[in-house]
Design a binder for these strands. Structure first.
Lengths: 118, 118
DNA sequence: CTGTATCCTCGCTGATACTG
DNA sequence: CAGTATCAGCGAGGATACAG
């Protein structure tokens, strides 16, 4: 099972890995962690993301129960996205990664330099 | 900086995220954690990976200092791959993810079911 | 404001075959 | 045994324009 976890798309590990591997998803989690934001706010904060891709990302996250989509029937229309408790809990694993990254980035970069020198 | 971490390819977080998002890299770490293996052994254990992709994965990991490539000048040739201490330490973040996945998979799956029902 | 609808390109993956 | 070479195909992702 440990061996097969990348081949079964239904494997929990694979599932989470695919989401965490997506840079937009990680960014959304980090940006939404302080409170709900509207579509345009998200877009501006992230910067460089097209509306299509942002929509895709948010839809996927909503499907998986990571964010909720709150629609206010006003004019002009307003939609707010916020993290669910599940989405908030994702910060744990993400933190583990960013911490590791900050701790070891110098070593990784050094390895790359060394590889280039060859 | 927290906002920009996905756009700068040199950002440590982005760097690690890209590697962890790659299913083959994660598998290699998990499989090599008990000791060195040869190219063919890795291929057989992983199953379903082509030599080209396995080579690409191992080269990338070697560049980043995650694995070492030990060549024994024998006939027939023998090459062993093993995790560096840095590679071993990657198990921490990976564990954080797999743990989260196993803990929350039911909730995620439930959210998906609910989304489908709509 | 909050998205959809197209189109297009690019990189990655896998299949297959071949070499030192 | 341990790769390299080559090619084809697919799908994600971005640019742009438009709609409710």
């Amino acid at each position: 099972m440990r061996n097969g976890d990348a081949f079964d798309p239904n494997c929990p590990t694979r599932l989470v890995l695919d989401r965490i591997g997506d840079k937009w998803t990680v960014l959304v989690v980090l940006i939404l962690k302080d409170g709900p934001l509207r579509f345009t706010q998200l877009r501006d904060r992230i910067g460089g993301i097209t509306p299509k891709v942002l929509t895709q990302t948010l839809r996927a996250m909503a499907r998986d129960g990571l964010v909720t989509r709150q629609i206010y029937p006003e004019v002009p229309p307003r939609v707010e996205y916020s993290l669910t408790p599940l989405g908030h809990s994702l910060q744990g694993p993400i933190r583990a990664i960013t911490d590791w990254a900050e701790e070891n980035v110098t070593e990784v970069m050094a390895a790359r330099e060394a590889a280039l020198a060859e």
